[in-house]
Design a protein around this nucleic acid. Structure first.
Length: 286
DNA sequence: ATAGGGTTACCG
DNA sequence: CGGTAACCCTAT
C-alpha cells in the first residue's frame, strides 16, 4: 500500500558484507548498531539485514545468475544516498564462483531433460500423495526432492509456484496445506508408474510417521524401508551440498585475498594521481 | 534477537 | 509465465 519497496543500494550491500566480515553472519543487530555501518544501514532493520544476506547467499551459490546490472534506485522518496560520480568501486560483487570469463567451462549440472517440468513435478507430487486435507510444503518438497535433483533454494521457489497454481485454480490451499482442486485432480495428468509402486493409504502413514517417531507394527516393513531409502537419499543430497559449500568457501578465501591485493595496488596508484577506468580495473589492465 | 517459512511487488 | 528481491509473520 504505502511502501513501494526499497531496493538495496550498493553502499548498503557493501556495508552489510563488511559487517558480516567483521562480526560474522548472524550478528545482525550488532552489525546494524555498529557506528561504522549505522549511518548507511539506518533505514534497515536487523531482519532486513538477515533477509538480504539470505538473498545474497542464494544468488552466490545458485550458480545460475551472472551479475545483473543493478541500478541503485529508480525512485528516491526522501533520503538519497546517491553514489558519488567519483571513482567508487570495490563494491565487492558476489561472484565467488568465478572471476575469469574465458575459463571455467564447467556448467549446468542441474539441467533437467525436460524444458519445463516444474509444474508437472508439483502436480505429480500433489497427485501422488493424495491427502484429503492437502499436503504441507515440507511434504511436497520432500517428495519432489526424492525424485528429482533440485536447487538449494527449491523450497522457496516451490512456494511461489504453488501460489501461481492457486491463481489458476489447479491447486487450493487449506490452512497451511496445498491440494489439487477437485475438478483438476480428476484429469489424468502425469503418466503414473505401474500401480504396484503405489501404496494404499500412504497419506496417513507419511504424515503420522513424521509426528510420532515410533509407530506401531501398523507400519509395514516395506514402507519403513522405503522411507529409510528416501531419507538416505535426502542425506546424500545434503552431503553433496555441503561439499559444494566447502569448495565455495575456499574460493571465497582466495577471492578475498586477491581482492585485498587489488585494493592496495589501486590505492597506491590512485594516490599517485593515476587515473584508472573501471574497465581497466575489471580486466586487470593497469 | 535470530532463523525460517510464507507473502507481495517487480522485472524479463 | 517464471524468477527474484524485499517484506512480513511466527516459532525457537
Amino acid at each position: 500500500m504505502g511502501a513501494p519497496k526499497q531496493k538495496w543500494t550498493s553502499e548498503e550491500e557493501e556495508a552489510l558484507r563488511r559487517g558480516v566480515l567483521k562480526h560474522g553472519a548472524g550478528k545482525w543487530r550488532t552489525i546494524q548498531k555498529d557506528p561504522e555501518f549505522s549511518p548507511v544501514l539506518s533505514s534497515r532493520s536487523n531482519i532486513d539485514l538477515k533477509d538480504k544476506w539470505r538473498n545474497l547467499s542464494f544468488s552466490a551459490s545458485g550458480l545460475g545468475s551472472r551479475d545483473k546490472l543493478r541500478v541503485p534506485r529508480p525512485k528516491a522518496p526522501s533520503s538519497s544516498p546517491s553514489p558519488s560520480p567519483q571513482l567508487l568501486l570495490l563494491s565487492a560483487p558476489n561472484n565467488v564462483a568465478e572471476a575469469s570469463p574465458p575459463e571455467d567451462c564447467e556448467k549446468s549440472p542441474q539441467d533437467d531433460k525436460t524444458p519445463s517440468p516444474k509444474f508437472s513435478m508439483i502436480l505429480e507430487a500433489l497427485d501422488e500423495l493424495k491427502e484429503p486435507n492437502g499436503s504441507e510444503v515440507a511434504t511436497i518438497c520432500n517428495f519432489i526432492e526424492q525424485r528429482h535433483e533440485v536447487q538449494p533454494n527449491f523450497r522457496r521457489l516451490l512456494c511461489a509456484k504453488l501460489r501461481r497454481l492457486i491463481g489458476v485454480n489447479k491447486v487450493e490451499k487449506i490452512d497451511k496445506s496445498y491440494k489439487l482442486t477437485d475438478s483438476y485432480a480428476k484429469r489424468a495428468l502425469a503418466p503414473m508408474k505401474d500401480p504396484s509402486l503405489k501404496k494404499k493409504d500412504s497419506a496417513k502413514s507419511s504424515k503420522a510417521a513424521k509426528g510420532l517417531g515410533q509407530l506401531s507394527p501398523a507400519l509395514d516393513a516395506a514402507e519403513a524401508a522405503a522411507m529409510k531409502v528416501a531419507d538416505a537419499e535426502a542425506k546424500s543430497h545434503l552431503a553433496n551440498e555441503h561439499m559444494m559449500e566447502v569448495e565455495r568457501i575456499g574460493k571465497m578465501a582466495e577471492e578475498t585475498e586477491s581482492l585485498l591485493e587489488l585494493a592496495s595496488e589501486l590505492y597506491e596508484r590512485c594516490s599517485r594521481g593515476e587515473a584508472l577506468t573501471i574497465l581497466q580495473v575489471a580486466h586487470r589492465e593497469f
